[in-house]
């Protein structure tokens, strides 16, 4: 069932892609095949495959039990929040904040989670930013402190 739903999603995607891609035309063209052909080819093949997914009988997908799925979803949201705040809060703080829930998901106690958060935030920052010269965001709050 879930594959059929995914197939329907892909079908919508390919129809949308063809719709958007139809108007792709180069103002001045030097070549017989413009920018439109390849995307249209890809989207139409994708549409055919999507129909295949919808119409053929397939084995049911085994999803994890719902409490596990809920935790995976929560973890995804945590990482998404991390991505959003990475630049604004700076590496040290955002990493520490992200690490605590992730450590809890993977069976760490609160104490361990706090430890992991603080340790990873500071040590990885020192390692990448200071030792390896990979520039990381400092964030507004720590800026006066770390330059």
């Amino acid at each position: 069932m879930s594959e059929r739903i995914f197939g329907a999603f892909l079908l919508l995607l390919s129809v949308g892609g063809i719709f958007v891609g139809w108007d792709l035309k180069a103002p001045i063209s030097y070549e017989p095949v413009g920018p439109r052909a390849f995307p249209l080819l890809v989207f139409s093949l994708l549409g055919v495959c999507a129909l295949g997914l919808i119409l053929t009988r397939r084995e049911a997908t085994e999803w994890a039990p719902s409490p596990v799925l809920l935790r995976v979803g929560a973890m995804f949201l945590t990482v998404l929040a991390y991505a959003l705040l990475f630049d604004k809060l700076g590496f040290v703080i955002s990493t520490a904040l992200m690490s605590v829930p992730l450590a809890r998901f993977f069976g760490g106690t609160w104490r361990q989670a706090m430890l992991a958060g603080a340790g990873l935030g500071v040590l990885l920052f020192l390692f990448f930013d200071r030792l390896l010269d990979v520039v990381l965001p400092v964030g507004y709050w720590l800026k006066p402190l770390l330059g």
Binding site: L102, V134, V135
Partner: peptide, 22 residues
């Protein structure tokens, strides 16, 4: 333990993505 490893990998992955365009 995974409770250090997983947040660590998540952080290093983000560093990797951030390193391209920031």
């Amino acid at each position: 333990p995974n409770w250090v490893l997983v947040p660590g990998v998540a952080a290093v992955s983000m560093v990797g993505v951030y390193a391209v365009h920031g």
